[in-house]
Design a protein around this nucleic acid. Structure first.
Length: 307
DNA sequence: AAGACGAAAGTGGTTGA
DNA sequence: TCAACAACTTTCGTCTT
């Protein structure tokens, strides 16, 4: 395993080490540097002892990014035909034929889907752990027949979106949409459908998870970023965040923070990277000023400018 | 001239009867 | 199942820098 001290992209030494996700993330440019480390968390949850027994396993690691998960199932072999009557014989062949048809159909679909998934995931620079999770979700969806009536691509996008959220490295629907070429609405729809049908629970995404990425695409300093997180923290305590879109909150915090640090960005610029409109930023921004008495900070900056 | 601000009308999703 | 509702968007006119 390589030991990274500097970000190969921007040379920054401001790295964030996340043991649970097995990743190192550059705080300045958002690059995921190393994601091949061991994942220390369980990927399943145990609700009772019986559940645990079933899910625990030993042996070679299973991967979902390969279409048959490194395993295969077959309906019997010819050698098992001895002693069967002609009726059973034909049943045997019928079953095998179906087995073949179904499994090849699923396999073909999975192969295509996983290739597409890989493409989109690498376009979005997603860590391997997210891709794995996404592949798992997609595989389950196929097995439950949830792809029927929907385009394969949209389910792939939905699975990726869900996986990102679960791993707390959220991408916006807009980004997914741009990378996959599927409409935002459609992704949202299939995402909701698939997670509901599979009983996957997803926590509402935390605005703080967006800050680092937005800040780096706006080329804001680490100071500004830290300040934005602080503001966010206060906002959450003042209950300004519930029911609001997390991206809007994150964008507004960044906007304010950039303002007081003299790294002003226009509302338009911030709005663009966050995938919201200026109006939303304005509304959140107004609320932030009202409830968090940040006015004095803003005034200070204005005075400084006049000099 | 560009950016910030705010009002009004429209959209898609959630909720509760 | 449908209507009310909240959040967000689009659009557009006005004010500020």
């Amino acid at each position: 395993m390589t030991y990274v001290k500097k970000c190969p992209e921007c040379g920054s030494i401001n790295l964030f080490f996340n043991r649970e996700k097995g990743e190192i993330i550059c705080k300045d440019c958002g690059l995921v540097i190393e994601d091949k480390m061991v994942d220390f968390t369980q990927e399943w949850r145990e609700f009772d002892s019986e559940d645990g027994e079933r899910k625990r396993r030993t042996g070679a690691p299973m991967t979902y990014t390969q279409f048959d998960q490194g395993m295969g199932t077959d309906v019997g072999r010819k050698s098992e035909l001895y002693g069967l009557g002609s009726k059973d014989r034909s049943k045997f062949f019928r079953l095998r034929k179906w087995q073949y048809r179904i499994s090849t159909a699923i396999e073909r679909n999975l192969k295509l889907a996983l290739a597409e998934m890989k493409r989109v995931a690498s376009y979005l620079k997603l860590p391997k752990s997210v891709e794995e999770e996404s592949a798992r979700i997609y595989t389950l969806a196929v097995q439950k027949g949830l792809v029927r009536g929907r385009s394969m691509e949209s389910v792939v996008a939905g699975a990726l979106y869900a996986a990102c959220r679960r791993h707390e490295v959220p991408r916006t629907l807009d980004e997914l949409s741009e990378a996959s070429g599927i409409e935002k609405k459609e992704i949202g729809r299939t995402y909701r459908f698939v997670t509901r049908e599979l009983g996957i629970t997803i926590l509402p995404s935390n605005p703080a998870d967006y800050i680092a990425r937005f800040a780096s695409s706006l080329k804001l300093s680490a100071d500004t970023q830290t300040k934005a997180i602080e503001i966010l923290d206060k906002a959450q305590r003042a209950e300004l965040t519930s029911g609001r879109g997390p991206t809007g909150i994150a964008a507004a915090s960044l906007y304010v923070s950039a303002l007081v640090h003299g790294e002003k960005r226009t509302q338009r610029e911030v709005a663009d990277v966050a995938g919201v409109t200026e109006v939303t930023i304005r509304n959140r921004y107004k609320e932030l000023l009202e409830k968090l008495d940040l006015e004095k900070d803003i005034k200070k900056v204005k005075k400084r400018k006049k000099k």
